[in-house]
Design a protein around this nucleic acid. Sequence first.
DNA 1: TTGAAAGCGCTAACAC
DNA 2: GTGTTAGCGCTTTCAA
Lengths: 337, 337
Amino acid sequence: MPRQMIKKRANVRDVAQAAGVSVATVSRVMNNTAGVSARTLARVSAAVEALNFVPRPAARAINSGRTHLVGALVPTLDHAIFSRFLNALETELTLHGLSLVVATTDNDPERELARAQGLLDLGAEGLIVSGVTRAPGFEGLRARHGVPVVATSTFQPDAEVPTIGYDNRAAARLALDHLWSLGHRRIAVLSGPVAGNDRTHARVSALRAAAGEGLILSEVSLSVAAAAEAMSDLWAAHPHITALLCLSDVLAQGALFRCQAMGVAVPGALSIIGIDDLPSSASTTPPLTSVHLPVGRMGQIAGQRLARWVEQEEPTVPEQLSAHLIVRQSTGPFGGV
Amino acid sequence: MPRQMIKKRANVRDVAQAAGVSVATVSRVMNNTAGVSARTLARVSAAVEALNFVPRPAARAINSGRTHLVGALVPTLDHAIFSRFLNALETELTLHGLSLVVATTDNDPERELARAQGLLDLGAEGLIVSGVTRAPGFEGLRARHGVPVVATSTFQPDAEVPTIGYDNRAAARLALDHLWSLGHRRIAVLSGPVAGNDRTHARVSALRAAAGEGLILSEVSLSVAAAAEAMSDLWAAHPHITALLCLSDVLAQGALFRCQAMGVAVPGALSIIGIDDLPSSASTTPPLTSVHLPVGRMGQIAGQRLARWVEQEEPTVPEQLSAHLIVRQSTGPFGGV
DNA sequence: TTGAAAGCGCTAACAC
DNA sequence: GTGTTAGCGCTTTCAA
């Protein structure tokens, strides 16, 4: 058995020896550095091929100091809104030669901190997070590594980290004002878990501020099934409500489906409005009125900005994306048409 | 300005000097290696703190030869089925100390190859892919890097790479047999894009093999909206069909929503069955009959196996996960109850 | 156009 | 317990 088969993996020196050149030349070839004669190039290439040489990324990274890795911390991958965001983010980062490492936090600050630590330990050059409230210790970690951090899904120009997103309070208000303008006054609100989620918290508190304590507020887990159950309970406990404001389209869909099952006319007997504007919301029956959140665009911009920050060391500034109301057929005037 | 401020970033040597110890000791402290006196530990820790020292991952990787990175190539992140899969995969990999880098392929083999190249260049120690058909060149790339590759979303024991998944042909047959058993004979099929997707292709061809050329087959893009449109067209062109078999729940939901809008009773006038069994499918009205695909479990197992392969160099074997029928209320006997 | 040699920042074998 | 020292695999001056 030739020693090549024994040696685990070829390195520059092996290639250099096989090609009868120096390691520097091999390096030049591997990096397409100009100034290598065609003849040498061919010889080195042949040796690379023959020895099945693949440069170790770590060895390159140690010299360049770059990993081309960016980390994203999201509550979960298993939600349409984050999927869309990450899809756009990944696409954009790829354009800039960066790769995306994902880590899920489950809305748990401690877990987020641990995962952030992990991402940084593996060499992430930048971080994308959701919202602005972090575990104590996060900022220290960030400072120690000195890496850029961009927060998304919210717009808070005064926050410690630059935010790229929409105003969650305003988004909730947009939905509430729509219902109000239709004459609805007895409104129930369906919310996802508030714990560990400052965006949801902002939405809820904006509604409270606007509507007072009279709001009928139910908090359920963020799933279609949970929303459907909550709808049943709500209808039994508060038969007088005329509108339902859901803090996420996932919840609005669940409520709508249950209304269909219960024979509650939407919007005839109950108007339903969501926030997110998931693609599928346009196709339900009736199509859901919703507050559109530009998460695709958000992913794209966040990617762009973080890339620039990482590459050109050019810190980014907060950017507000506007949420806007999409009126479809799930909401109608109080008292019916 | 002290020279610390000039120096870009502290390294082991700086810390060693500041603590009055050797670099080896610093390394020991950083790696929690046993056998460091409490006193030394304290001194080094203090120096680490003072100099804001953070070990460079690349430098560690060059010694260990490990990056702890695993890459996943998926068609898109923006689909509930992949989100669930990746969520489970990420969770499992984390348990094994591995991080997940995601890359989207858009069902384009060339793009997949390019992204695979990228993942390998950045040091991915293993790859997770969907399906088994690859661009020519993929296998060469894999062989050159010698990294483990696990294919998911399909079970094909004879494939070049180990597969962890379900039998797509059988899954499609499960759906068809259910409709048949209910007495349906005039069945339409709604499929997502077949190009570049061997799983969809397998499902379609299984149906063709079983039902012959008589199948009314429509191929649409994989979205609720597209399915809704297709449903309208289908109903206009083929009013005699009694059942609709959708190769994905996303499509089934779109068709169902449109039926609701058109006043087509489901399952009274048309039975609808999907494949995937998305969580939301249990809550629609009527709840969707579907073929359950265990994608969460698939992500977990794929993560487990790939981790073992990477860590213990223990190649994995194909594993079949069973798809099974979940009968809900969107399908009923031919001719109505 | 090419080569020699000095690192990059860390780990690990070995010595004390 | 702790220090010395030789690498890990590559890039990058600086000479030739």
